[in-house]
Amino acid sequence: MKKLDRHQIAARVARDIPDGAYVNLGIGLPTLVANHIPKDREIVLHSENGILGLGPKPAAGTEDEDLIDAGKTPATALPGASYFHHADSFGMIRGGHIDICVLGAFQVAANGDIANWHTGEADAIPAVGGAMDLAAGAKQVFVTMEHLTKKGESKIVERCSYPLTGVRCVTRIYTDLAVIEVKADGLYLVEIVAEGLSFDELQRLNGVPLKYRAAA
């Protein structure tokens, strides 16, 4: 079996983002999605610190300390971009104006619950940022993650054991093994992306029963 690498997962997510979408990309793997948006699609990237129309990284020497992204790294703004304050920015998120957000996760449950902000360790310093707002507010929540933990356990589970970020909000899961859709009656396989992986083997690795996807 040949699993997808991080860039391939990002490219697979990008394929499913339609022309004209307003999209928020989380930090880490989700950020890579921006590199793979097909050239014939116009996507408006939202950065929750206050930009619509986020552009690529600036060339060395042209950074502006007043222009950063949600990861606090130097950014650029495309023609057509706008700036706004934090309450407006999260109004866009909570108000259902963001079509798709892409988040990383520790676990996703079969009912669409997501855990991605806290490992649950007692002495961990908690930090949540905008993850709970995005989970609760975006029209669609896409999750990108490796399918299995380092110990080989499925990160797709019946119930999350880590503290929740949001309830029943994830709509799609993109892993190094498969693309899975979360529906009211369970998880549907959209596509196996790992080369040489059978449905039965995926079913064995996955923590929750998978159904074949109904016609889209």
Partner: peptide
């Protein structure tokens, strides 16, 4: 949560006594 922080600050300036938000429902926060 970041958006709740922003909205709580906004609410203070706008004279709002409280608000209901979907953010963090069902979580330990």
């Amino acid at each position: 949560p970041q958006g709740t922080l922003a909205e709580r600050i906004r609410a203070a300036g706008a004279g709002i006594g409280g608000f209901f938000t979907p953010t963090a429902f069902g979580t330990r926060l």
